[in-house]
Amino acid sequence: MKTSVVCFPGSNCEMDTIRAVEALTGQSPELAWHKEKLPAGTDLVLLPGGFSYGDYLRVGAIARFSPVMQSVIEHANAGGLVLGICNGFQILLEAGLLPGAMVRNESLHFVCKWTYLRTERHDLAFTSCVPDVVKIPVAHATGNYFIDQAGLKKLQDNGQIVFRYCDSDGNVSAEANPNGSVDNIAGICNERGNVLGMMPHPERAISQELGSDAGASILRAALGCVAEKI
């Protein structure tokens, strides 16, 4: 089993992500620098949060053209698992691995708080052991997911909406939406289901001491799936 965490200039959650993987598996993932290719034999790619390339131009827009992303795209197209968290999600959108785009939060504020997510699918590598409602924090200024009506219908019809912002009882409501995202979308996958992007940070919710261990269920699912392959 091999997990690689990609680091761009301006990433700032790569160490949290590495620590989370270590805590859950006892093994250290590889760190892939943006100028390199993915380490050979990578099964799971984690794109961490942060502000890659200073968020210049648009969030994730420059990272998309980095050498490492070319091999992430090849990995994804070959069916390999990719999980993009926050800035990682934004990069997946810019890279075209996931549909839609991010715009500034409706409030124009940087939103940093706990959110509840309703898990809409349990059959993905990332969600096989994730409860119906999970408490995971968000921290972003540009997490307002946009897709046009035709695109939204396609996401809904294909079951590509994986997480939606909700209240603690699992009710999806406008009040529970922290950023104005279309249809309360917090995370989506590609049609094949091997690429997942989500704005909330599962790596920041891996122990009750930190307020929630629900994020561990997502990472454990992805890591567990990788382990099963071996």
């Binding site: 715009v103 500034r104 939060n105 409706e106 409030s107 124009l108 307002n144 946009f146 046009d148 104005g180």
Partner: peptide, 10 residues
């Protein structure tokens, strides 16, 4: 520019 149907909070 943002397309007409995209909200522009700024």
């Amino acid at each position: 520019m943002l397309k007409a149907d995209v909200m522009d909070p700024q």
